[in-house]
C-alpha cells in the first residue's frame, strides 16, 4: 500500500442526527453497534442514558440528541451506537443512523459560521461541503467533557 506522505485527507464516519449529517474522525471510532438494551444509571447528567454491555465491557452511552438539546426521538431499527474512544475513555454515542465512512479533504474544512447557534458551536470543529452534502465535523473532546458544561 502506498504511503500517503502528504496526508491531507481524513477518514470520517458520517452519521445523521435530526436530519443533519455529522462526521467523526475515524481514529476515535471503535465500532458501530445496533441499539441494544441499556441499564439506567441514577444521578448522572440526563444525556447519559445508561450503560451497555459491549462484549463484556461496560460502556456508558450518551444520547447525542439530548446532548445537543434537540428533541428526543424513539429509538428504531436504524438507531446506532457509535462506540468512540478518547484518551482512556470509551463511550457510546446514540445517533439516528450511521451512514458512511468517507474521506474528506482537510483543506475543504471551513470554520463554523458564527451566526448558527451558540451552545452547540462548542462541539463543532468545522463544516465540510461535499457535493450537495454538508457535514458537520464534531469535536469529540467537547462532547465527552461533561464537567465543564
Amino acid at each position: 500500500m502506498p504511503v500517503q506522505t502528504e496526508a491531507k485527507e481524513q477518514k470520517v464516519v458520517v452519521f445523521s442526527l435530526n436530519q443533519k449529517e455529522y462526521a467523526l474522525d475515524v481514529q476515535h471510532v471503535v465500532s458501530i453497534e445496533k441499539m441494544q438494551h441499556f441499564t439506567r444509571v441514577p444521578h448522572v447528567p440526563n444525556y447519559i442514558k445508561g450503560v451497555i454491555n459491549l462484549r463484556g465491557v461496560i460502556i456508558p452511552i450518551i444520547d447525542l440528541r439530548t446532548r445537543f438539546q434537540v428533541e428526543a426521538a424513539e429509538y428504531n431499527q436504524n438507531t446506532r451506537i457509535i462506540i468512540v474512544s478518547m484518551a482512556d475513555k470509551e463511550v457510546g454515542l446514540i445517533v439516528d443512523e450511521a451512514n458512511d465512512v468517507m474521506n474528506i479533504d482537510l483543506d475543504t474544512i471551513e470554520s463554523q459560521p458564527d451566526v448558527i447557534g451558540t451552545e452547540r458551536q462548542n462541539y463543532i470543529a468545522g463544516v465540510v461541503k461535499i457535493q450537495d452534502r454538508l457535514l458537520i465535523l464534531l469535536k469529540l473532546e467537547k462532547i465527552l467533557n461533561f464537567q465543564e458544561d
Binding site: H37, V41, P42, V44, V51, I52, N53, I58, K89, V91
Partner: peptide
C-alpha cells in the same frame, strides 16, 4: 467498573453483567 467516563456515581460502586447479558 463503569469505566473512566462515569466516575463517582453516587452510591454505585460498579456494575456487573448478569447471565442474560444485561448490566
Amino acid at each position: 467498573s463503569l469505566g473512566n467516563y462515569l466516575t463517582n456515581v453516587f452510591a454505585i460502586s460498579g456494575a456487573t453483567i448478569l447471565g442474560d447479558g444485561q448490566v
